[in-house]
Every structure is written in structure tokens, then in C-alpha cells.
Design a binder for these strands. Structure first.
Lengths: 207, 207
DNA sequence: CAAACATTGTTGTCAATGACAACATCGAGC
DNA sequence: GCTCGATGTTGTCATTGACAACAATGTTTG
């Protein structure tokens, strides 16, 4: 079985497993992700993955952690864009939706609840981190008077809901023939209008 | 093996399988749903479910169809409530979120994409039906001048996104200590404010 | 330097599962 | 009352996740 060029130790199996797993996840979905198949793909024995991931769920959890990490990087990048705060809010929404539709099965893992208790804690924390990033930008928008008063955390939950839900619709083919970009524009316009300061002087979000 | 009281034909196996499957789904999740375990629970042989569902996915699809059917009934009921149209819109949102959090694993099945092609068509149609119900109420609200102009279908997508996303957050334990009812109120207020007619005379949705 | 030790990988095995095939039983309609 | 389709049963197979026992490698330390 062992080719001449296969050293006994792979050297980087954990990372290789994660990389390959993410590829499989993106193409054929989480259900068809088999530890043994991964091992075959990487040319190691069927039990080798067990050294790095206690069980299948542990692998999925690790993938989810990676997903949140990348997502949060993207959100933070959107926060630091130049430009008016409402534009940055919209940009964050777009960044979220782009990530979500480009990584739909991964996102599903990230939000699926069946994680083991320990990694569940880590994942929840990462999710809260996403929300906190949004809340930070919202708080800034409040200071500028373009977003209504209220707990930034809670307003961030609403904003998050909108974009997360829209991504779910898109992935589930429920947008019919509406182009995602148009649906996104409309959703962000409704959201930002709803979040805007009650009346009068506030900058209008859309244009 | 065969007890005296077990007739050769179960008589209602398909429905029994669905009922038991939904119970298992609600308690231990879709992953732990095994055709063989269902068969055991119902006292039939391990291959009996195969007579009613081509494969495991077909069972899951049937569950999803049932879920959409019940959901749409609930949405239609909300449409037919008495009262002002904005209140009915909010009621529909609440109905959706209640259903979603009370049937989280089922909802996940309903929106998960891995269905076989044929039932996928049926499920997509049922999902569109949900959207159309919302669109109908939105169109009515437009006639009354309390919702902005625009394709009702597209505005319905936005409304759907908001409540679907909020439900996802709730199920994923991302609302921290925010009570779901409060998050719902805020989300619906933001949504209906954003959907409201641009300015001036329109009835204000929140209060 | 060599000997313990931890890490990582391997082979072997087991029970559970989904899927299928071949056969059995039942009921409905000719 | 016979045939046939629907429904259930037994038997079997390959795949899988999980675990145990063992092997090879790298690391620490006496």
C-alpha cells in the first residue's frame, strides 16, 4: 500500500484534512463528507483522521470555526472602509451576503446547533463577535445621528437577521428570477430606512 | 418475531412513519433519524419503510412538505385576522417566527437544498407560496397607502428575510439574553418602518 | 548518546446503517 | 377463486464511524 514517497507521518494532516473537507463541503455538501473518504483522498489510513478530530462532528465544528473567522475578517474589513457610515453599513451587509452565498454549506454548518458542548461555546462566541462588529458600526452611526436610538446590540440583531435571511432565501432558490443584487439593494434600503433616525435631518440611506 | 397482534400489513405505515419521524426530528435532529430505527419503533421490518419512501431523503422531503403546508396555513390564518393591515403584517411575522422556533429542525429541512430534483420542485413551489401569501398582504397594504410602492413580491422577499433571519438567530442562540419577543418587536418595527410609505400621511406601523 | 515518552499513523474489527434483491402475505377487481 | 399489485419480510452487501492494539517517528531528558 505504502508508496515509496509516502513518509510514515503526513506532516500536516490536520490542515490537509480541513482543506480537503472544505472543498468537499462546498461541492457535495456536508452529508457526503466522510472521514474515510477524506483519508483515502489524502492517501492516509482510514483511522488517521481520528488522531486530529475526535469524531466527525469535531471536524465539522473546526470547519465552522474557520468559516466564522473568515466571515468576521470580512466584516471587519467592511467596517474600516472609507466613506459615510451608512455606506459602510450597507457594505457590511453586502459582504455578509456575498460570503453567505459563496459558502452556503459552510454557513449552514456555522449556524447549525448540533455541535458538541465545548466547541459550541467557541462557535457561539464567534457568532457573537460578528454581531458585535455590526453593533460597533451601528453605534457609530447613532453618534452621527443617522440611526435611531436604541441598544446597538439589538439593532445589530435586526440588521443581521435581514441579511442572513436574505442569504437563506437566495441559497434556497426562493428569489425566483429576482437577481440577488437587486434583492440585496432593496433589503438594505428597507433595513437602513427602518433603522434611520425617526425623522427629519438624518441622512437618507439609499442614495 | 411476529406477535399475535401484529397483522402482516401495518395499514397506515406511511403516516405512522411520518409522525414518528417528525417526533424524532424535533427531539434529536435530522442526523439521528434512521429508517431502521423508525422501523423498529413501529414494529415493522427494517426494509418496510422502503416501500413508502424511496430513500432516506424522500422521507425528509415528505417531512418538509408537511412543514410548509402547516406553515402556509398559519400564514394564511394571519392574513385573515381582523384588524388594520399593518397589524396583520406584524401578526404574520410573529406567526412565522413562532413556527420557526417551535419547529427549528423541520424548518431547516424545509430550506435545505439537497432534495431530489422532483420533490425539490414541489418544495420550491411551496416556498414560493409562502412568499406569495405575504406579497398579497403587502399589496393590500400598498392600496391603503401604508407601504411604499414597489413589486409586492420583492417587498415580500425582504419581509421574509427579516423574520426568517431572526428565527435563525434565535435558534442558533445568537440573541444572547435578548428575549425573543423583544427582538421580534424591534425587528418588525424596523421592518415595517422601512417598508412604510416614504413620508407624511401614512399610518405609522409601530405604535 | 540512549532511553523513555508523546505524537501520529496503521491495521483490524465491530455495530449501525441505507440500499437492494428475492420472497411472502394480503386485498381488490376480474 | 384467481391473478395481480401493494405492502411487508428476510437476507445480504458495501460504507461508515468508532475504537483498540500496534508501529513508526520525533522529542525530551537522564
Amino acid at each position: 500500500m505504502a508508496d515509496a514517497d509516502s513518509p510514515y507521518h503526513h506532516g500536516n494532516l490536520r490542515e490537509a484534512l480541513l482543506a480537503r473537507a472544505e472543498a468537499v463541503l462546498a461541492t457535495t455538501g456536508a452529508d457526503s463528507l466522510s472521514l474515510r473518504a477524506l483519508a483515502r483522498d489524502l492517501g492516509v489510513s482510514h483511522a488517521a483522521p481520528g488522531r486530529h478530530f475526535r469524531d466527525r462532528q469535531a471536524l465539522l465544528d473546526a470547519l465552522a470555526v474557520g468559516g466564522f473567522t473568515r466571515l468576521n475578517e470580512g466584516l471587519r474589513a467592511a467596517v474600516e472602509e472609507p466613506g459615510p457610515v451608512t455606506a459602510r453599513l450597507a457594505g457590511m451587509g453586502r459582504a455578509y451576503i456575498e460570503f453567505a452565498v459563496a459558502n452556503a454549506p459552510l454557513l449552514s454548518l456555522m449556524f447549525t446547533v448540533k455541535h458538541a458542548d465545548d466547541s459550541s461555546t467557541e462557535l457561539r462566541e464567534l457568532g457573537h463577535q460578528s454581531l458585535r462588529i455590526a453593533a460597533g458600526l451601528i453605534a457609530l452611526a447613532q453618534q452621527e445621528g443617522v440611526v435611531r436610538a436604541g441598544e446597538p446590540d439589538r439593532l445589530a440583531q435586526v440588521a443581521f437577521s435581514t441579511v442572513h435571511g436574505l442569504a437563506a432565501l437566495a441559497v434556497g432558490s426562493l428569489l425566483e428570477d429576482t437577481p440577488l443584487a437587486e434583492a440585496t439593494d432593496l433589503a438594505l434600503d428597507v433595513l437602513l430606512t427602518g433603522l434611520a433616525a425617526p425623522r427629519g435631518d438624518a441622512a437618507r440611506p439609499g442614495a
